[in-house]
Design a protein around this nucleic acid. Structure first.
Length: 888
RNA sequence: GGGGGCAUAGCUCAGCUGGUUAGAGCGCCUGCCUUACAAGCAGGAUGUCCGCGGUUCGAAUCCGUGUGCCCCCACCA
């Protein structure tokens, strides 16, 4: 007898097995050319972020895939790491320092601030990886990477230099998205458009030579008028034709600006006349370039008004200035009116500040040319999306790609490897820091102060941790990786860019498949977010239910794509399941003598329930492997659930109880051999999902001659249906057997007969094989259905006295119920059944009566339909006969 | 303004390439403390598969359309 603890205590076993796995080094994947690699790149979480169940689920999916492939014999690598997350991290550290010491980063100085950043990274980066360990993630911790590690930084530098030298990185003065709170440029992809109600202000601009005549412009941003350098109208707008070419004297400023004509202006919008502020609006910027207008920047980096505006507005915040400008215009009687309008305003994703288009000198990557190959691989199927619909999103972005602004006015990140020369116009770059200007040889050179966008290092994730730009063994062996599992919101920011750079540097996609997981929301359907505080903390749930329960529940309800609504109580079902597995194993092991070797299974000697159980193990194994191959993880998990609970526990163990408790030694040996064999298979199947509880149980299992074992379950061979025993005919017999047992249970339960009352029953069947089956398994039927006798007869007999009847497929089961039967209730039940079956029969008859069906449907469908009709018709007549006898 | 997705039992959702008597978990009802598990066992109820058209021998499944939600993209001041 092998004893397990009465209760599975997750805490007790989780740390034990985690340590054992680490000690065994099972998750470390060195290059091994004798094995095929299977690689997943972990999307590196930001060092600042705390994980919620959304990530938890997505990462568990990856872990399941990696563990499954590892057990299949692949050299499985799950590469973990974290991202320095430039803006996000700097923001948090700045905030913390301000709160604790009342200092700004400028007051601390760049070097000191840098130290604080690294200290922060050490602290929080560690917290995240701790969470990962608690989740049981089987990453190769020896390879843990950070985007600012020396090696990865070298890769950033190398790609910058490459692209710069290829003319794909350039510096330009352009209107960028400026975050006035963080005082840095941000890329288009870091914007959040928010629909807000603003106002469309109508302002009168007087002509320079005729102040009595005015032209009214409409704007949502009156404060920018201080930087206006033109007024534009549509070239064919008859209302304004006569004014084109004339000058306006800009109110409040006094500058004379032209009235120009441009197609961009929509006559029907507003007044049909637009003020043009090239330095503060993207469209105006374009018009400004077309018409060679001056660009007047009227704001400081923090979005206060600059010194080039009239004194009255200087230093004012842009929103205060807006009101003040309106006030001033009213004083001049140049303010006409305002009307409310809904419009989309770009906000900074990080600081939430309203983004200010700002004219500044920034570094850009030319994306169009680079995007070409990335588009092609998606079109040709070298890159596949699961679900496929995301391909469109990916392509749409790449096909409309804009140049990527990569410079950030931050301190946390990779410093731009560009040196400016004090003596000439040229810039110098290189893999090593230069000491002289490569154009004029001057030593007076100074490095750019700015850093690179975080994503400029993240996009190298498929190559940089493997040592690129060196042609390392790692790189050759692991690249391209197999599948990327991530969330839809970073398809542009990250996925597409990795494909771009992967193709550019390696000429091959960085991963063949992209799995986009479901968005995890709360019960109200709101996305988990830090600001809402509605996320579920994995550690909290683990504390309560254990890691395996959390992993099971999370992935059982995580289909591809889509959205799942999750709440804390959902995890109870996982806990129940783990408990069930534990108890079932504990029960079985009580009957196992560790000193007695288990038997090899002899197909000739196996009983029907044993054959069926083995067949079920094999067929579920086949399905589980197929589901995992297609990334249908939730379906695989569900199959495991039914195999364990529905098949192994509810039937396998229930059927075996008598033998296990009986005196027939040989039978007991055989049964325990079969059950341990199946349990071994189950533990292997479930290990990727529930690694801890399965490992603990597995280590108590006696060795079965038909299962070769590894040193730990996590590196023991995953079941392969092709190598398992199959008994397809047993499955059919078993279905009839179950039909009979559940049929009798059902009628007796519905009739309100207490479970303790042992009943007599008899079965009629005209099918020879069923008669044999029921006779052979009669004892089992009696026990499972609570009978004291079961008589099997041929032909359709009917009952002599009052009896409850169950009409199954190919048989009728009767339970004589003299005196206890409520005839009216029975009549009602049978009548309902009759009408139910009648409908089915009618449907099938109509189908087969339809000539086109018979003519056009495939042969096998017709055969099946005929068989169905036969079956149902027999059932129907049997039901009718019994109903009649009840009524007569 | 474009693009995509979703609508299936009271709730959360499965249902892969069209052919099932449409499923699971939770919840609900009935009966059981049957010595693995009451975090359990047995049984049960509940669905015009969002509406309307169409394709097809056959549609929850494919197409169109309407309605209702959700997401992404977008420079109409």
């Amino acid at each position: 007898m092998i004893e397990l603890d009465p209760v599975y205590d997750p805490k007790k076993y989780e740390s034990k097995w985690w340590n054992a796995w680490m000690k065994g080094g099972y998750f470390h994947a060195p290059v091994d050319k004798s094995k095929k690699p299977f690689t997943i790149l972990m999307p590196p979480p930001n060092v600042t972020s705390q994980l919620h169940m959304g990530h938890g689920t997505l990462y568990t999916v990856q872990d399941i895939l990696v563990r499954w492939r590892r057990m299949q014999g692949f050299n499985a690598l799950w590469l973990p790491g974290t991202d320095h997350a430039g803006i996000a991290t700097q923001m948090m550290v700045e905030k913390a320092i301000l709160a604790e010491e009342g200092k700004t980063r400028q007051q601390l100085g760049r070097a000191e601030f840098d130290k604080r950043l690294w200290a922060w990274k050490e602290k929080y980066g560690g917290m995240i990886t701790d969470q990962f360990r608690r989740m049981g993630f089987s990453c190769d911790w020896d390879r843990e990477a950070f985007t600012m590690d020396p090696g990865l930084s070298k890769a950033v530098r190398a790609i910058f230099v490459d692209l710069f030298r290829a003319g794909l990185i350039y510096r330009g003065e352009r209107l960028v998205n400026w975050d006035p709170a963080l005082k840095t440029a941000i890329s288009d992809d870091e914007l959040e458009m928010k629909e807000i109600t603003g106002a469309l202000y109508h302002i009168k601009y007087p002509l320079a030579d005729d102040p009595e005549t005015t032209i009214t412009v409409a704007t949502t941003r009156p404060e920018t008028m201080l930087g206006d350098t033109a007024v534009a109208v549509h070239p064919e707008d008859e209302r304004y034709l006569h004014l084109i070419g004339k000058k306006i004297k800009l109110p409040l400023v006094g500058r004379e600006i032209p009235i120009i004509a441009d197609d961009y202006v929509k006559s029907e919008f507003g007044t049909g006349a637009v003020k043009i502020t090239p330095a503060h609006d993207p469209n105006d910027f374009e018009i400004g370039k077309r018409h060679k207008l001056p660009f007047i920047n009227v704001m400081n980096p923090d979005a206060t008004m600059a010194d080039n505006v009239p004194e009255r507005f200087r230093g004012m915040d842009r929103f205060v200035a807006r009101k003040e400008v309106i006030k001033a215009l009213k004083e001049l009687d140049l303010y006409e009116k305002d009307e409310p309008t809904r419009h989309a305003v770009p906000h900074s994703e990080r600081s939430k500040a309203v983004v200010e288009p700002r004219l500044s000198l920034q570094w850009f990557v030319k994306m169009q040319e680079l995007a070409g190959p990335a588009i092609e691989v998606a079109q040709t199927g070298k890159l596949k999306f699961y679900p496929d619909a995301w391909k469109k999103t990916y392509l749409h972005w790449l096909e409309n790609i804009q140049d990527w602004c990569i410079s950030r006015q931050l301190w946390w990140g990779h410093r731009i490897p560009i040196w400016y020369c004090a003596d000439c116009e040229g810039v110098t770059t290189g893999l090593e820091d230069p000491s002289t200007c490569e154009h004029c040889g001057s030593t007076k050179i100074k490095q750019d102060d700015d850093v690179l966008d975080t994503w400029f290092s993240s996009w190298l994730w498929p190559i940089s941790p493997f040592g690129w730009p060196e042609e390392t063994e790692d790189l050759k062996y692991f690249y391209p990786t197999d599948v990327l599992v991530t969330a839809s919101e970073i398809i542009f920011l990250w996925v597409a860019r990795m494909v771009v750079v992967g193709l550019k540097t390696r000429g091959e996609v960085p991963f063949k498949d992209v799995y986009i997981g479901a968005t995890v929301c709360d019960k109200q359907g709101r996305k988990f977010s830090k600001t809402l505080g509605n996320g579920i903390d994995p550690l909290e749930v683990i504390e309560k239910h254990g890691t395996d329960a959390v992993r099971f529940t999370g992935t059982a309800q995580a289909p591809l794509g889509g959205r799942i609504r999750m709440e804390v109580t959902d995890f109870e079902s996982g806990a129940r399941f783990v408990n069930k597995i534990w108890n079932a194993s504990r029960f079985l092991l009580k009957y196992v003598d560790p000193k007695k070797p288990l038997r090899k299974l002899d197909a000739e000697k196996l009983t029907l329930p044993e054959k069926w159980l083995l067949e079920d193990l094999a067929s579920k194994t086949e399905q589980i492997n197929r589901c995992l191959e297609q990334y249908r993880v939730n379906e695989a998990v569900e199959l495991m659930y039914h195999l364990i609970w529905g098949s192994f526990c509810d039937w396998g163990l229930e059927v075996a109880k008598e033998t296990l408790n009986g005196t027939d030694e040989a039978a007991r040996e055989q049964t325990t051999s079969v059950l341990v064999y199946v349990l071994e298979g189950i533990m292997r199947l479930a290990s990727p999902v529930m690694p801890f509880v399965t490992e603990e149980i597995w280590n108590h299992l006696p060795v079965h001659p038909q299962w070769a074992r590894g040193p730990s379950l996590v590196v023991t061979k995953y079941p392969d249906a092709a190598q398992l025993m199959r008994f397809p005919e047993a499955a059919a017999d078993w279905a009839s057997f179950q039909d009979l047992v559940t049929g009798i249970r059902s009628i007796r339960s519905q009739a309100g007969i207490p479970p303790k009352d042992a009943l007599d029953a008899f079965v009629h069947t005209s099918t020879g094989s069923l008669k044999t089956l029921f006779e052979t398994e009669g004892g089992l039927v009696r026990r499972l259905a609570g009978l004291k006798s079961l008589v099997v007869r041929t032909g359709d007999g009917g009952s002599k006295g009052p009896a409850l009847v169950y009409v199954g497929k190919g048989f009728e089961a009767y339970v004589p119920a003299e005196g206890i039967m409520d005839v009216a209730k029975e009549v009602k039940r049978l009548s309902a059944d009759v009408s139910r079956v009648e409908k089915i029969v009618a449907g099938l008859q109509a189908k087969l009566g339809n000539e086109s069906f018979v003519a056009r449907a495939p042969e096998d469908v017709i055969v099946t339909t005929r068989a169905q009709l036969d079956n149902m018709a027999t059932q129907l007549s049997s039901l009718k006969k019994n109903l009649a006898s009840l009524q007569g």
